[in-house]
Amino acid sequence: MSSAENLLQNKQLTDGLKQQRLDQLLARADIWQAANEHRRQRSGITTGYAGLDALLAGGGWPRGATTELLVDQAGIGELGLLLPALAELTRREQMVVLVNPPHIPYAPALASAGVQLEKLLILHPQGPRDSLWAMEQSLQSGCCGALLSWQERQPPADKDLRRLQVAAREGDCLHFHFRPQSCAASPSPASLRLQLASDGDQLALQLLKQLGGRTGQRLHLARAADLTRRDRPLH
């Protein structure tokens, strides 16, 4: 083989290597390419609401990332928003972990929403250190489909949120973090932030932040008709 040929081959090899590295870099979830928008993989887990899926960049809840839900008031359908996705995950034999839920998750309601109760794990760790540890372990383990956590009294430090986000990416787990709306102004590493409020019979969503997608949209989701129907009770 002549040296010129050899050189040419080497050049091709290094070019191939460079291209490969570039592809690896571009395949990262946190790099958004406007030009390739239409070729993007719709890798999200469907939310069960077509309108919401259309707004989200991945066509559903972002996988392996933290989703922040900013809610001030209980009872506006914040858990109902997640239930279709959770039911789907438990049907796929993945665990769903609830860390520090504010009340008892009521089994009949969850079962009728399609959640497999055998796959539901509820954790009540003592103290913020243990709960952060438990959350990180569960997110990393790779056997959890989703983890729901509720913010305790003191807001977690920024570096803790970042660690949880990284852990969720490692374990390819959906992480839903419920926080009060007062945190909306503070920056957060979450890849999706949604503000939830009630508007009449509907749940009003606002996208505050979305990695690789547009933000600022508002969406109204109607609540289940059998809840909001008025039948003039006797009382």
Partner: peptide, 8 residues
């Protein structure tokens, strides 16, 4: 005591 599940 920190771990639990629910059943019907």
């Amino acid at each position: 005591q920190a771990l639990s599940g629910v059943s019907l």
